[in-house]
Computed example of a mutant assay.
Amino acid sequence: MTTSSRSREPYLLAALLGGAGVLHIVRPSLFRSMVPAPLPRKHELVLVSGAVEIAAAALLLHPSSRRAGGAVALGLFAGVWPANLQMTVDAVRGPRPRWYVAATIARLPLQIPLLRVSARLARSQAPSGVRVRSRR
């Protein structure tokens, strides 16, 4: 990956997370069935995950908070992996169109680049000239 495409990563990831977060809040019904069966309060979990996605997106936009945004995004992607797996299991077991089943299966490995980019951003340093306050 080139330097210029890496410099766009936080903004692309922020756009993805921000859009998904808004969708979780505006249309939570689209996501409730993805929450694994043993988990309670599905509606609330969908709303919280949407809020966390929006927060991660906001953190990714500024260099001084980008590491935190990467860490939040990494935790979020790892945390929602079970929901995506549940969605795939439900698609395979249920009467779903083939394209839908294929899309849910393909989605699982496509999350790996999102995890990798999030991890890279979580480890990144702020660019020179950007002050990051340290805790004392």
Rank of each mutant, 00 (worst) to 15 (best):
L12N: 08
R116F: 07
Y11K: 15
V92N: 08
L121S: 01
V101M: 10
P109N: 03
Q125G: 06
R66K: 13
G75K: 04
V22W: 01
A55S: 10
P38A: 12
P28M: 09
Q111G: 03
P40M: 09
L115K: 02
G19H: 11
N84A: 05
A37N: 11
S33N: 11
S65N: 08
T2K: 09
R136T: 06
H62M: 11
M34K: 09
A55H: 01
P10K: 02
L12E: 05
P10H: 05
S29A: 15
A20T: 13
S124M: 04
D90Y: 06
V130C: 11
L59Q: 00
A55M: 09
L30M: 14
L13Q: 02
S49N: 11
L30W: 14
S124N: 07
V52Q: 01
S7K: 14
R67G: 09
L17A: 03
A20Q: 08
A122V: 06
S64R: 15
V132C: 05
L115P: 00
P95E: 14
M1Q: 12
G21C: 04
L39K: 07
R136A: 08
R133N: 13
S29F: 12
L115D: 01
A126K: 00
V26P: 00
G50H: 00
S49Y: 00
L30A: 14
R66L: 03
P10C: 07
L61V: 10
E53S: 11
R8H: 11
L45T: 01
